[in-house]
Design a protein around this nucleic acid. Structure first.
Lengths: 197, 197
DNA sequence: TTACTTTATTGATTTATGTCAAGAGCTTCC
DNA sequence: GGAAGCTCTTGACATAAATCAATAAAGTAA
């Protein structure tokens, strides 16, 4: 799908907050990113596939999850202005151990791994921006790991409310529960206890 | 302390596996890294301090942990050839939320944050190497998060044996337990169950 | 609308792990 | 070398959360 110029402007802002972005680089990114609209319920990436693209999430809602026999573990919930990849798979171009599912109608800008490599070749300075971005995501992930380990059901749900309140309506509770590493029953009881003060 | 040339050679190997490293860059790194020997029991970084250095762990054993009231959560266990920082603190030069402790007499090569920034300025291509390294650590961290969430006490201990067997003797069990998100009692019972088949 | 399916709630029960406690076995350090 | 700490083990018990189960409610499709 043809790329609308404004879809990348939040991404350019992110990059420019890190360091100067030449017009040539912007042009190259605009040329290679392509817009994609995906309906709720669709799958962006399936376990076992290689994650061949990076997505910049312009609007919508995604979740990534691992299949464990009958169960699922929701690993991340991603929304507007997130850069989305299945890291282990994308970085090394090996099969993914997780799937990515679309929770609400979504618009992304898609960049293929090989186009990204070409951009790195043509614009070595782009490594600087992505190093910083990777560092930021790394630090966030560390925080989340800590949160999951430290807290009980109630405080994990409070954490969710702080960070994801806006999406409460759009995310089925069973996925929230799994994201917070608890069963849907436990989440339901936690919510009910919160209501009754 | 004066830096012995060979202390950085494993680091140079890591970098060269990623991409070419000019002699000038090697020289700059050798000039700025300095050797440090730290005895078991000492603290490399304390919660609340800014993590002003990056350490390349040449020999020895470290653990990072969060203090929670009376308790501790061991977040990482680090050994030879690890690049060690408290990520959230180092990247943004803000106070650390974790401490780093020396579990066995340790030799590190230390590089200050500001020297690292100077190196980035003089050798922009170094961003490429560190982007790749950050990506690798990111993917590893993701795996570990998944492991902690998926498994029960027994399989978490098996995971530890696979990945850290060499250090079993050197790490007090209470830290292993905390690293695996369980109490020392649970770890002790898990080990005993494994012994009795 | 009505049927059909999925999701959320609530209750009863089980279970893995945590907590508390006491003793054994190592360290270590005056 | 013995006292004083730690750490690890083992037992008894407590507990948060998981599991199982039965409705109720909410979506979805026909």
């Amino acid at each position: 799908m043809e790329l609308h110029a404004q879809i990348l402007s939040p991404l350019f802002s992110i990059l420019e907050n890190i360091g100067p972005v030449s017009n040539e680089l912007k042009k190259a990114l605009s040329d290679k990113f392509e817009e994609q609209k995906i309906l709720k319920g669709k799958t962006l990436l399936s376990e076992g596939e290689v994650c061949k693209s990076l997505w910049f999430l312009s609007a919508g809602l995604l979740r990534s999850y691992h299949d464990i026999g009958e169960k699922e573990i929701t690993s991340r919930i991603m929304f507007t202005n997130h850069i989305v990849i299945s890291a282990g798979s994308f970085f090394t171009q090996t099969p993914a151990t997780e799937s990515i599912e679309v929770l609400a109608d979504t618009t992304v800008a898609r960049l293929s791994f090989s186009d990204l490599q070409d951009i790195y070749k043509s614009f070595p300075s782009f490594n600087y921006h992505t190093r910083i971005i990777t560092e930021q995501y790394f630090a966030q992930q560390e925080q989340r790991l800590y949160m999951l380990r430290k807290h009980d059901a109630l405080s994990k749900y409070r954490y969710f409310l702080e960070h994801y309140a806006a999406f409460l309506q759009d995310i089925p509770q069973k996925y929230i529960a799994s994201f917070l590493d608890m069963t849907p029953e436990t989440l339901s009881r936690t919510r009910s206890r919160m209501r009754n003060k």
